[in-house]
Design a binder for these strands. Structure first.
Lengths: 346, 346
DNA sequence: GTATTTGTTGACAACGTTGTCATCAATTTG
DNA sequence: CAAATTGATGACAACGTTGTCAACAAATAC
């Protein structure tokens, strides 16, 4: 009742070890008749190659690492399912590595991890994917990776990546609010450590500019990607003399915080205040009212990144190809409405 | 710049391969002086043993599998962090395996997985942990595992587990509602596939019984652990002639659905309707009003389960010991309040 | 018809580690 | 003081696979 080995298969199919190995790895140069014989033996014995032996011998590996530092469970789970779906198709295993992006020895840690656990490559999610030194260190150590980053276009820096155009989507959201008649639109920043934060802000700024709305620094509040910062930020904005009629939170959690603050202040959303988020996490659908937001196809982004990583592994020689951009889509729900009292000016 | 091997260490420390191996694995019978010499060489070369070679040779393994089938990201993430925290302390890797608990060939799949990826053992989360045949199959295949299950007490069935007393916690929630004066308390079931569902229902039933409140079948609605079922279930209850004054949703997502339905129906929670959930997921704090719920220490539960698994791996001969029970704690927030119109009867 | 190429297969070593057993010195026993 | 035991170390094989290269038959070229 011992686990069958390649030897058992070879004996059963009356061929050599190497021939079985060739069949398993889909190498060319095996007669169709022989291949069939081997495959039959494999099936009969329910043989499955041993990953340890395989990666020991071939110095190749059959597991990927997914590296992230993100407190948002919805995002992380989507990321994981995207990567996992490719892993399942290709037979790779997946090791997950939540980590602390501010750790100074992160690059060494990741290098050691990859070498030690024989990972074939890494999928780096933000903000790890945006640390220049980290990327260079990994590249210098000859470690395969792919990045998911926030950028308006392909950085063309020689390292493979999938880029998400947060700026463009933030522009759309701001434009949507403007078209509803809002001119005083509050902006709540996400964390400093994610590049998506300034990208989203740039989108907000650009839309205001295009519609000739003068930006007001008082409406722009720093903070992190958290519910609590959304709550606090909203209270700051409510305390202004000239309150905003709409608030754009840099992600859904912030927006949920704004929503809670609005309700706590007795406001009726969206009539007293329009609120928009970013991400399309499940609770944006489940809050009341449901949040207008930008839908990030995180799972598909992760899928594409993983496929790109595998492609890179196979042609490690040539330049990265297949970098791809994604743009989150505006999803209009019930938390945004036409401004009630149109501004007097203009 | 090649990865150093045990050979390099041996050469540098001027000892044999085997002695280095002994030091690495903390085996006895090495002179302190020799050990120090080896450790120095290890440090100088920054040597790390190769897991593939290790597990190939020793048939031991340095990775665990985490098996779950749960759509709730918060739960899954907590589970993962609990297991990961132990993995980091002990040097194990972690492979995650979300799967479909209804797949008929699940047992075979998991067996194959463990043997193939050389996993040392599995942490089984509900509902996988509650499938009798699955457990027996794995045990028969000599696969190490630990279960996280919903039960009021240690099942003492010879297989290691950590048990969570959902019944007790559901009793507390129901009692809390009763003490607020509610007698018509709706109950929304979770999924049939999780044993926690009937356990929570039993707690609800028991509390009603202890307070001599006759159960009303119309107030009990089947469903799954989802927002949508909460929404639909609530609408059913609202349509009753004699509406409930409180609703207990089997988890926070259901409760969030109830909350949305209540708001859609123009109700003022908690004054028009008290709502309680179960789980203490982050959005129970972030909804408006914040949800009364029962706090599950999922991360700690997962931690303990993993430690138990590792203990089992080391003494695979003797009976499981260290099975442990957890009881979720009542968390009272703002979604439950004293009933407004006390019932006329009694 | 011989020499060369092409295609298919197998023998063998190697990957980096640990288990088994042998070796040898130091210690204890009779 | 010889014999037996203990303790520290090393030589070597083995884990299950794949890479290298050789062997051989069949097909093609001269």
């Amino acid at each position: 009742m011992r686990k069958p080995t390649i030897k058992d298969v070879a004996r059963r199919a009356r061929v050599s070890l190497k021939t079985v190995s060739r069949v398993i790895n889909n190498e060319p140069g095996v007669l169709e008749r022989t291949r069939a014989k081997v495959l039959r033996a494999v099936a009969e014995l329910n043989y499955q190659p041993d990953q340890s032996a395989r990666s020991l011998r071939s110095a190749k590996s059959y597991a990927l690492g997914l590296v992230y530092d993100n407190p948002n469970p919805y995002y992380v789970i989507s990321l994981q399912s995207g990567v996992l779906s490719v892993c399942r198709e290709t037979g790779y295993g997946l090791q997950i590595h939540p980590c602390n992006s501010t750790s100074p020895r992160l690059a060494e840690e990741l290098s050691a991890l990859v070498r030690n656990a024989r990972l074939a490559g890494l999928v780096l999610a933000p903000p790890m994917s945006e640390r220049r030194e980290l990327i260079e260190h990994l590249a210098a150590d000859n470690i395969a990776f792919v990045r998911i980053i926030s950028a308006a276009e392909d950085p063309r820096d020689g390292h493979p990546c999938v880029f998400v155009d947060d700026r463009d989507a933030a522009y759309d959201i701001t434009e949507h609010l403007i078209q509803l008649g809002h001119t005083r639109i509050g902006f709540l920043w996400g964390g400093e450590s994610h590049r998506s934060s300034p990208e989203r802000f740039k989108g907000y700024e650009a839309a205001l500019k295009d519609y000739a709305i003068a930006p007001d620094k008082k409406l722009i509040v720093p903070g992190d990607y958290s519910f609590d910062d959304g709550f606090r930020g909203a209270r700051k904005l409510f305390a202004l003399k000239d309150r905003p009629t709409a608030i754009f939170g840099s992600n859904d959690e912030i927006a949920a915080g704004v929503l809670a603050a609005a309700k706590a202040a007795g406001m009726d959303v969206p009539w007293d205040l329009s609120i928009a988020g970013f991400e399309d996490s499940p609770f944006s659908k489940q809050s009341w009212p449901a949040l207008t937001t930008a839908k990030q196809a995180t799972e598909e982004i992760a899928r594409h990144a993983t496929l790109l990583l595998l492609a890179t592994l196979e042609h490690s020689d040539d330049a990265p190809h297949g970098n791809k951009g994604f743009s989150p889509q505006l999803v209009i729900r019930d938390s945004t409405a036409r401004v009630r009292v149109p501004p007097s000016g203009n």
